[in-house]
């Protein structure tokens, strides 16, 4: 499997009236060809900002990329000139956004909005574009695609709009699809349909997907690998099995404890993670999770732990994984955790 996307030490800040918001503080992850990576983390941890940085969609005036690199197909794309970036956006990288209700132009036919992308990036003959759009609309499972072509967004439900946005994202056969919480705004039955659609499309188009979510159920459903993000850094990453069965970071434990467990006979109580994420105006020098961590040690508030690798694919940033740290099993049996 070859590397499609590699993000290294990405740092992004926002200028606000209150000062500098350090939204992304050294994110690294990679994505292989044909793979589905889920980026999980609670609201405000910098998932969307990371996605926007990759696609060059950050609001120019208020944001600053302070460092790092984003390599796509072996080429650095961070800070690429506008024209070159425009050639990649919509063509090699497609975006499916968080909010289908507001992400389509209300005064343009949905078919035209898809046609626009194809016209920009391919040299399909003009009279063939509409045919292709209708084909795409059928592919994403919209009934009566010919009629849908000339409908306006307000005539479609949220789920249908998300399908239109998916059709738009795949219209030029992208190598990478970034799906930023594609199901958050939809109701549960529609969520499942949209996830199924994404899975099917990923297989049939053999594309890679970076799916952003705070729903571990979604992760288990679609992803092969997971990156867990907290306060602007990736605190743990690994394959789905590694993260679900053998997590190495207390934040990941917390996330797993806060979702219902399927198949376990007993009535498990959900354990929410106490406290709230740190202030990104002045992020702590040590581990950002230390303040909420039940296992925090002195070193945790003093210094940010390095990435510690436990397998080819699995690593975590936590002092507990340091050989000098006490075994957590001992801590649990000592009654510090439920």
């Amino acid at each position: 499997m070859s590397r499609l996307l590699e993000v290294e030490d990405l740092q992004v800040s926002f200028k606000t009236y209150g000062g500098e918001v350090k939204a992304v503080r050294g994110v690294d992850f990679y994505l292989n060809q044909g793979e589905v990576l889920a980026v999980v983390g609670e609201s405000g941890c910098g998932k969307s900002v990371t996605a926007q940085s990759i696609m060059g969609l950050l609001p120019k005036k208020v944001s600053r990329i302070k460092g790092g690199s984003v390599t796509f197909e072996g080429e650095e794309i961070l800070g690429l000139p506008k024209k070159q970036m425009q050639a990649i956006k919509g063509s090699k990288i497609g975006l499916i956004s968080q909010d289908p209700m507001t992400s389509l132009n209300p005064t343009m036919m949905v078919g035209k909005q898809i046609a626009e992308v194809i016209k920009k990036h391919t040299d399909i003959a003009k009279n063939q574009i509409k045919v292709r759009v209708i084909e795409l609309l059928a592919m994403v499972g919209l009934p009566n695609p010919e009629q849908r072509y000339s409908q306006y967004p307000h005539e479609l439900s949220g789920g249908m709009r998300q399908r239109v946005l998916i059709a738009m994202a795949i219209s030029c056969d992208p190598q990478l699809i970034i799906a930023d919480e594609p199901t958050t705004a939809l109701d549960v039955t529609i969520q499942a349909q949209i996830l199924d659609l994404l899975k099917d499309l990923q297989k049939s188009l053999d594309t890679s997907i970076m799916i952003i979510t705070h729903d571990l159920g979604v992760v288990a459903e679609v992803a092969q690998r997971v990156a867990v993000m907290y306060a602007g850094v990736i605190v743990e990453s690994g394959t789905v099995e590694e993260i679900f069965e053998n997590p190495d970071h207390p934040y990941t434990w917390g996330l797993l404890n806060s979702i219902p467990k399927y198949g376990s006979g007993e009535k498990d109580r959900l354990i929410p993670i106490q406290g709230s994420p740190p202030d990104l105006f002045a992020p702590p020098t040590g581990c950002p999770f230390a303040a909420r961590c039940e296992y925090a040690m002195e070193i945790c508030v003093q210094e940010m732990p390095d990435k510690k690798r436990t397998s080819e694919t699995h690593h975590a940033r936590c002092w507990l994984n340091d050989p000098r740290a006490p075994l957590v099993k001992d801590l649990i049996s000592a009654g510090r955790a439920e």
């Binding site: 425009q86 063509s91 956004s97 992400s103 132009n105 992308v117 920009k120 946005l165």
Partner: peptide, 19 residues
């Protein structure tokens, strides 16, 4: 948001502004 969508489609700035 739909302007962000248009931007993510790789349209030129003029295209986004006008259309």
């Amino acid at each position: 948001n739909y302007i962000k969508t248009a931007d993510a489609k790789g349209l030129s700035t003029t295209g986004i502004v006008i259309k």
